[in-house]
Computed example of a mutant assay.
Amino acid sequence: MTRPLRAAAHIWPGGTPDYATWRAAVLHAEELGADVVFGYDHFHAPAVHRTAAGVELAPEQPDLNHFEGWTALASWAEITTRVEIGLLVTGVAYRNPDLLADMARTVDHISGGRLILGVGAGWYRKDYDSYGYPFGPLRERMDLFADGVRRIEDRLDRLVPPPLRPVPLLVGGQGERRTLPLAARYADIWHCGLEPAVRRRKDDLLREYADEAGRDEALIERAANWTGPAQADELRADGATLFVTELKPSPAGYDFTGLRDLLAWRDTAR
């Protein structure tokens, strides 16, 4: 299956001066030519730095200006006209999965069929503790994730009216025993932010799990983080077609340099 290269802007709200600034960044990303605009599903802004192995939390996790993702998505569905929208990714434990499916269906209708439903197990403990959700061991959170994905899929099939299109399910994560098998069985998009060599091994496992589930692995779009043209060329050769760049606010607003670079690469590489 041949897929077009796509560029996504992952626009963080944490630290933005106000909602209007975040909203304007979404609109500007669409104006620049992004194919997808993502928010995230946190209640606080994680202070992190990225390594080859993934994400590491900073010692201090300050409270910053912040806004909730799903209510924002309903607004984005109204104010945008072309881009697909979603959260990278929704913590399944934060909402009843059947309700989450109904929320997704509703936003899909508001947007005219442009929602991507990103889901994950949740990992940022401050979200759980500050909002009163139990932060169980990873095994329990993965059990909730697996059950939640099944319930979401079932509810989406039974809603009246149904979504305007089969809502693409994006599964984010890299866990080899639980996340990858779920992605292989259910995901329309798999997002993994690892370096190419490590990611390649995860992708091989995804293919194996899809085969075991009786599913064509080519049905799963591969999404990766944008870190520059050289790595993107390598990831593209491995099959990635959706590239995501993060936009974080500063006192001066959002810097769109990374998105512009990604869009220029996308347009040249197509």
Rank of each mutant, 00 (worst) to 15 (best):
P46A: 11
E60N: 09
E56V: 14
F38G: 00
W22D: 00
T51C: 06
A29D: 06
G54H: 11
A47E: 15
H66T: 07
A45Y: 08
V36P: 01
G39I: 02
Y19R: 07
T51V: 15
P17W: 08
H42M: 03
D63W: 09
T51L: 13
A72P: 00
D41H: 05
P13L: 08
Y19P: 06
T51A: 02
A53C: 01
A52C: 02
G33E: 07
A47H: 14
G54T: 08
A25R: 09
A29N: 05
F67H: 13
V37K: 04
F38M: 02
G39E: 06
F43V: 04
T71G: 10
V26W: 15
V37W: 10
H42W: 04
L64W: 06
V55M: 14
P13R: 03
E60D: 15
P13H: 04
L73Q: 00
E60L: 15
G54K: 07
D41R: 00
G69W: 05
D63G: 11
E30W: 09
A58P: 00
G15M: 08
D18R: 14
T16K: 05
D41L: 02
W70F: 09
E30P: 00
L64D: 14
V48M: 13
A72Y: 10
T16W: 02
P46T: 00
A20D: 14
R50I: 09
Q61C: 11
L64N: 07
N65T: 15
H49N: 02
G39S: 10
A47D: 15
N65Y: 08
L32N: 01
